[in-house]
Structures are given as structure tokens and as C-alpha cells.
Design a protein around this nucleic acid. Sequence first.
DNA 1: ATAAATGCAAAACTTTTGCACCCGA
DNA 2: TCGGGTGCAAAAGTTTTGCATTTAT
Lengths: 137, 137
Amino acid sequence: MREREINKPMRNSRQRAAILEVLKSTKSHPTADWIYEKVREKIPNISLGTVYRNLAVLKEMGKIMELKCGEKCSRYDGNPENHYHFICVNCGQVFDVEGVEVNKKIDQEVSEKNRWEVFHHCMEFYGLCSECSKKNV
Amino acid sequence: MREREINKPMRNSRQRAAILEVLKSTKSHPTADWIYEKVREKIPNISLGTVYRNLAVLKEMGKIMELKCGEKCSRYDGNPENHYHFICVNCGQVFDVEGVEVNKKIDQEVSEKNRWEVFHHCMEFYGLCSECSKKNV
DNA sequence: ATAAATGCAAAACTTTTGCACCCGA
DNA sequence: TCGGGTGCAAAAGTTTTGCATTTAT
């Protein structure tokens, strides 16, 4: 993974703005390809490479999160605040978990008991979303 | 993801046994390719496709776990008991978290507050392992 | 004997990258 | 103008799959 040079000046392109806008305007944790298709409605000749490059930059800027839970391809979350996710094992949809606070103390607990320097943690819940649950899958 | 047919009879192959043995004999959460190289020491002409196929079967049998945290490729864990993982963001090594109990009640809590049917959860901690921490990365 | 499992190679998929050109500051 | 960003296409890397053959039961 190549790191961005420190203090490298950064320009704003319509492509980057459009990608961020798409990501901010959905709660669906889309894949890079979905974002690509969505942005193409505005910028028809944008390339998938540009989408990937910008997702990497936006992630590095801390404006978005990359989720790599379960599936083959990454999903992106326009909300960079730490929060937990729920993945439906039937339909594959990803949801934000509501009503459960992020446990901030646990990082320190893990640090102390294992001699590591813990920065943060992720938690993903797996099960059936309400729709799939109704269908008795 | 194609599902295994229910009640489909299953045979034991040396390949499958060797793969499971390699996975049980390490704590290193290896990738499919690492497992492939390791099994080749015993069965030189085993194919990578067979490794992938068997990892999928073993996972479905509940004998191993697949980890998809952070990296591009999956890692496999010979311990199917639910436990948490720590990933070093510098060297990429994956460790089991010791001394922190798996929170079993939280699944029910998330279920109730979000109307989902939660089966289980994963938690991954990110930071520097003791070696990388020493190096002042 | 039967069909599950394998080895091999090709294919599928996601993601990255080299390069010439474009465009924002 | 300067070099960051883009589009395009090729490449890289992981995982899956089709098919003929092997092998466990």
C-alpha cells in the first residue's frame, strides 16, 4: 500500500466531489462498482480507476470508511465516525447498528492484556435483517 | 456463493485432512496461498483450486473460520470458537486476543434494538503489535 | 459402481498501475 | 505554468469454475 506524501497539495476535482456526494447521500454502504455506476449518471466518462483512486484518498483524509467484512469486495461508508455494522447473511445488505454505544474502554483493556498498542476496533454483527427474517429464510 | 447440498455425502480425502492439519498446527491465521505452499510439502501436486474448495467445505462444516479483516485476501483460523482478533497495521500479522471475554449478551441487545435476528458477531482490533511498537513505526 | 474430490488451466472479478493528456490553483 | 488528477487499457492478484480423471465408499 503506497502512502500519500505528507503535505502534498491537493486539488478538488468534480470527480472526487461527486464520489463523496454519492457516498454521503446513501446509507447503503455501497461497493466501488455501485458508486462508479451512480457517479456515471453525472459524469458519464469517469473511469473506475478514478473511483478507486479517490476512494483511497477520501479514506486517507478520514472522510469515509472502508469496510471489508465478509464479502469479496470492499464497501464504503460515508460516515467516518466509529460505529458498528450489521450484515445480513442472506441478502448481503449492510446496516449501521443503532442503540449500541461504541465501547471505547475495550481498546485499552486489550492493549494492557496483550502488550499491543491498540488504536481502534471494528465490530460486525451477522444475522438476518428484518425483511429476510420475515421470509423465513 | 453456491451452497452445499444438504445431506450430500462427504468423503475424506488426504488433501482435506492435510489442509485441516496445517491449519490446526499454526496460530498464524494464514492465507490460502500460504496453506497451499505448506500442504505442498506433503502433497506436492495438490492444486490451489483444491485448497480453496476444501477451505470452503471446512468452513461450512464449522471446523475453521474465515477472516476477512483488512487485507485483500482472506485468512483462515483453525480455531472455530468465537474469539476476537488483533491486526497489526504495520506488519499485517493477525493475533488472537487473550484475556477479553466474548460478549455474548450484545447479540441479543443488537437484535432487540434493531429488529434483526443476530447470530453472532466479530470484533477486530487494529494497532501495532509489540514488535512493531518497539521499532517506533 | 457411483459420484465425490482432484488437478489443471482458463476464466472471472476486484483492484492497481503506467502513461499521455487535461485542468485546477 | 506546474504537477495533481483523469481516462484508458493493461496488468496484477485472488478466487472460482469447467472438465476429464482419480479415488473413497
